[in-house]
Computed example of a mutant assay.
Amino acid sequence: MPVATKLSEIVALRIEDKQQHAKRSIFSTCMLLIGNHILPLFGKMVRILVGGQNVQTCLFRKLDEGLSPKTVKVILIVLKTVTHFGVKNQTMEYRQIDIKFPTERNKHSIDILSRSYQRHIMEYVQSHLTFKNLGIYYV
């Protein structure tokens, strides 16, 4: 196993290993999380600097940006599997990652359409049917 100096290099080794054994749907989900969240946050970090406080700060930022707590927890799970892979293959030193999630976050209220307004929109879409609003009509 080659020696990796950055987390992005360990991620690349993990992807190569995981691709052979994972279900396609799980692998695709992991790839999305890695590409959209883990690499932008931690990819350039030196392998020994990925620790609890760095991770805690970055994940709280993701929560503040509007990601759901479940998504943030899955990001943490994928990050932990990458670091465990690095430790197992001796490309990274072991660092405990203990994250404390807040028990309650501010709930975002969602405005919903009234039945009459929804009916009004559907009538408009039906009378002005285009490819663009076809998706609205059939939802």
Rank of each mutant, 00 (worst) to 15 (best):
M31Y: 03
E93I: 04
I136C: 15
H21P: 06
R61P: 03
I38G: 04
Y117E: 06
S116I: 02
M122R: 15
K6R: 01
D111V: 09
I97C: 09
L59P: 07
V11M: 13
N89W: 12
R14T: 00
N54V: 12
Y138M: 15
F101K: 06
G52C: 03
K80S: 02
T103C: 14
S127G: 15
H120Q: 07
S109N: 12
L67M: 15
V78L: 11
S68C: 08
D111M: 11
H108A: 13
N36A: 03
P40C: 06
Y124R: 13
G35Y: 07
G43I: 01
E93W: 02
L39R: 04
H120E: 04
I121L: 12
H128D: 00
I26E: 06
V11K: 13
F27E: 05
P40T: 02
Y117N: 09
V11P: 13
K70C: 08
P2A: 12
E65K: 05
E93R: 07
V87Q: 01
T71I: 07
M122H: 13
E65W: 03
R95Q: 09
R105G: 08
R61V: 02
K73G: 12
T71F: 11
T5W: 11
G43K: 01
H84S: 04
A22V: 00
D98R: 14
I112P: 04
K88H: 09
P102Y: 05
L49T: 13
L79C: 01
N133W: 08
F42T: 02
M45Y: 05
E9H: 11
L67I: 15
T130I: 02
C58D: 01
N36Q: 00
P40H: 05
D64E: 05
L67K: 15
Q118W: 08
A4R: 06
E104T: 14
L129K: 11
R47A: 14
K6H: 01
P40G: 08
K70M: 10
D64Q: 12
V50N: 03
Q56G: 14
Y137Q: 08
S116L: 07
T83S: 08
I10T: 02
T71A: 14
V3Q: 13
E16C: 08
V74C: 10
L59T: 00
A22Q: 00
N89L: 10
G66E: 02
G35D: 07
Y124C: 11
S116N: 07
I48A: 13
A4E: 00
I34P: 08
G52M: 03
P102F: 07
K23M: 04
F131R: 15
I110T: 06
S109I: 08
L79E: 02
L33R: 05
P2D: 04
V139T: 09
P40V: 07
Y138W: 15
P69C: 02
F42L: 11
G135H: 08
K18Y: 14
H120R: 14
R115D: 12
Q56A: 13
I34Q: 04
K80C: 04
E9C: 12
L49S: 15
G52L: 01
L113G: 14
N89P: 12
V125G: 05
Q56I: 10
Y124V: 10
I15W: 01
Y137K: 10
E104Y: 14
I38P: 00
K23I: 01
R119H: 13
F60L: 09
P40S: 10
H128L: 03
I77K: 15
I48P: 06
H84M: 05
K100C: 11
V3P: 09
P40R: 09
I112Y: 09
N133K: 14
